[in-house]
Design a protein around this nucleic acid. Sequence first.
DNA 1: ATGTATCCGGTACCTGGGTACCGGGTTACC
DNA 2: GGTAACCCGGTACCCAGGTACCGGATACAT
Lengths: 145, 145
Amino acid sequence: MAGLRSGQVATAAGVNPQTLRYYERRGLITEPHRSIGGHRMYPPETVTILRVIKAAQRLGFTLDEIADLLDATAHRHGRRADAGLPERARVKLAEVDERIADLTIIRAQLAQAVAAGCHDLMTCAESPDCPLPFAAIADRRRAAT
Amino acid sequence: MAGLRSGQVATAAGVNPQTLRYYERRGLITEPHRSIGGHRMYPPETVTILRVIKAAQRLGFTLDEIADLLDATAHRHGRRADAGLPERARVKLAEVDERIADLTIIRAQLAQAVAAGCHDLMTCAESPDCPLPFAAIADRRRAAT
DNA sequence: ATGTATCCGGTACCTGGGTACCGGGTTACC
DNA sequence: GGTAACCCGGTACCCAGGTACCGGATACAT
């Protein structure tokens, strides 16, 4: 009846016990009941929630986004301007596509450098024959995930 | 004759002036000469070096790797067990391929979630019909860049 | 010679997602 | 009822790659 202790939950979900407290601070899991002595006693579904969090992380959602998503789930009585899962998944999908496109360009450049036999960055930088883009795209900063 | 001041170099290379000092600490650029008053006076090729660094970063090399690469360039009198640019580029290329493969799987899962019309993570987690992998792969941790 | 722009070193802070350590209190099992 | 294993809150630290702030000194143009 009492519930699971933090160590049990952590083991069952495959996470570090500290992570539970961290997620609690971040608002990803709700504060569990406490034993008389102050120890956290978790309901069993917490393990599922943790698995959901980990699955969502693998899909590229940040902890903040996941918190929102779980929140939206929790009190899903209608309106709530923030988009639900389907919408967010579509947005994330677009982000992933963009990231793949970025990496594909990078891949091509690396392949060219290998093919051209660039043996030294500084020499390449001064040679007009080097395929590497030293003339910086410079501006499109911070690629995601 | 004196050389460029840090602000001039930073502007020319499109980086923050603080970044120059940071790179110096990290061993990416060598300590420049100083004016009588102690101000750094850079040789003009520093701008090229910075562009090279930025280009290499875009290709996915870390600052430590770039430091090594520039180092290897600098005193390239023969032996030196650490691989040169061609070898490193091949390794990095493989890493990028792996990352693209990862993202492709993620992309497919997101697309499935969208197609299946998953509307709520917690509900999905309990439904056997949901395509999302809640039963964690869990172990293959920390995907790169 | 003076005003303004720039630079100095040192230190602290940022993002994101945790992990580690501490001294002391609680539970569980025999 | 002892004792081992666990948990508490609080704080500090980790990764990478920077950025920001500070008081004071320098450089350069006039």
